[in-house]
Every structure is written in C-alpha cells, then in structure tokens.
C-alpha cells in the first residue's frame, strides 16, 4: 500500500520549483540594480543551493545527535546520507557562485570571507566522508563520525554565518559592508525567493529519502549494517 501522504511534499517541491523557474525568469525587476542587473535572478537558484545545503547539514547534525543517544545504526545512516547530499548542493552553490561572481565581481574567486568560509565548510564535510571511509569497524565508525559531525555543523555555521558578518568586508548581501539584505528585498522578489528556497529544500529531502531507503534496502540484502 503506497502511503499517499508521502507524495504530498514531493508534489509541493515540483510545484514550487516550477513556479520558481517560471516566475524567477519572467518577473519584471522592480528596480535596476547597478552591476548586478538581470543577474539578480540568480538569487532564486544560487542562494537556494546554500540554504538547502545548510538544511540537510542540520538534518545530518540532528541525526548524529540522535545516534549518540541510543546508538541506532539507522540514525547514523541518515546522518551520513544527509551529509553527502549537503556536499552536492554545496558544490553546486560554489560552481554557480563562481559564474555569478565572474559576471559581477570580475573574477570567479574573490577575496571574500563568505567564499572562503563556504569552501572551508565543504572541506570540513569532505573530511567527514573521508573519516567514515577510514574506519572499518561499523560501530566505531558510527560513533566517531557522529561526534565529528557535531563539530562539523558548528564549524559550518561559524564559517558561513558568523565570520563573514563580523569580518566587515564581505561582498555578499547581508554582511557588513554590503547594503543589500534579504529582508530589504523587494516584495515581488521575496515572493519568489522563499518558495524557491522551500522547493529546493523539499527536493533535497526527497533525494535524501530515496538514498536512505536505498541504503536500508542494500543493508537488508547484504546483511551488513552500512555501505
């Protein structure tokens, strides 16, 4: 019996992302932004990658905490898969950001605390993947990587959310030194931005659900605990 309610959020993801694409590309810009011009539309797509990455990293963080409280191997499974998906969205954020930076700031990588912070966060999570693959004992792997993952998430928040704001010279909106903020965004753009972000997040949760189910099935078939 298919649980229909589980398709609801997937349908919402499809509707929101379709809307984000159509509205995001066709909306008449309420103002002419110097330097940025039409590329402000990247807000709906590029920024969505980062919000989504942090959201799945948060899921990973929560499941690592849950794993340490009870040592359920399935919690570790969710944490590991979520971290992987976060890395995918983070890489997409980096690459899309390089295109946008090239068009507006004149170079794909500029000296900006937000960029370096994002790169550091990805490295921290790549280390999580490496750490997992380097421990053969399944129980040990789960526990050690859960502890590491908690530090990883806190570091990511500091690198992406805190340091760029106190450094005072980030080119990104919402930081000291930049006048643009999401809260100060025109309502016509915000009406696309928030649905877009939610759509990307739901898409990531959908992929996460599939990967976790695949991993469980694999576990059932091979009688091993993890892959």
């Amino acid at each position: 019996m298919i649980a229909h309610y589980k398709w609801i959020y997937k349908a919402v993801a499809i509707v929101l992302l379709t809307y984000a694409l159509l509205a995001g590309l066709t909306v008449k810009l309420p103002y002419e932004l110097p330097v940025i011009y039409e590329s402000i539309r990247n807000l709906f797509y590029h920024v969505g990658m980062w919000f989504t990455m942090l959201f799945v990293f948060l899921i990973s963080f929560i499941y690592s905490l849950r794993h340490l409280k009870g040592f359920n191997p399935d919690h570790d499974r969710v944490a590991a898969q979520a971290a992987q998906i976060g890395l995918v969205f983070g890489m997409l954020g980096i690459f899309t950001g390089m295109f946008w930076a090239n068009a507006t700031w004149g170079a794909p990588w500029v000296r900006d605390p937000k960029l370096n912070g994002a790169a550091m966060s990805l490295l921290v999570y790549f280390a999580y993947i490496v750490l997992r693959s380097s421990i053969a004992d399944e129980e040990k792997k789960a526990r050690i990587s859960a502890v590491y993952n908690i530090f990883a998430f806190i570091l990511a928040i500091i690198f992406i959310g805190v340091l760029p704001r106190i450094s005072g010279d980030s080119l990104h909106p919402g930081q000291a030194g930049s006048p643009l903020t999401v809260a100060g965004l025109d309502p016509s753009l915000r009406a696309i931005f928030y649905p877009a972000v939610l759509g990307w997040i739901l898409l990531a949760v959908w992929i996460l659900e599939i990967k976790v189910r695949m991993s469980r099935l694999h576990n059932t078939l091979t009688e091993r605990d993890y892959d």
Binding site: M1, I2, A3, K6, K10, I59, G70, F71, N72, P73, D74, V78, V205, W206, L208, E209, I210, V212, R213, M214, R216, L217, T220, L221
Partner: peptide, 30 residues
C-alpha cells in the same frame, strides 16, 4: 526512481522493519 525503489522494497520486505516509514518519522530496527 522512487516508484522502482518502492517495488524493490516490497519484494525484499524485511520482517520487523516498517518500510513505509520515511526519513522524518521513525524506525525500530534496533
């Protein structure tokens, strides 16, 4: 992909695991 995975899950349903549970709600295979 989702539907195909669902078919595989049905075929290999393991006793004791609630295959309908998703990532948000929970599991009891401990």
């Amino acid at each position: 992909i989702d539907l195909k995975l669902r078919r595989l899950e049905k075929r290999h349903r393991e006793p004791g695991i609630d295959n309908e549970s998703d990532t948000a709600s929970k599991i009891k295979n401990e």
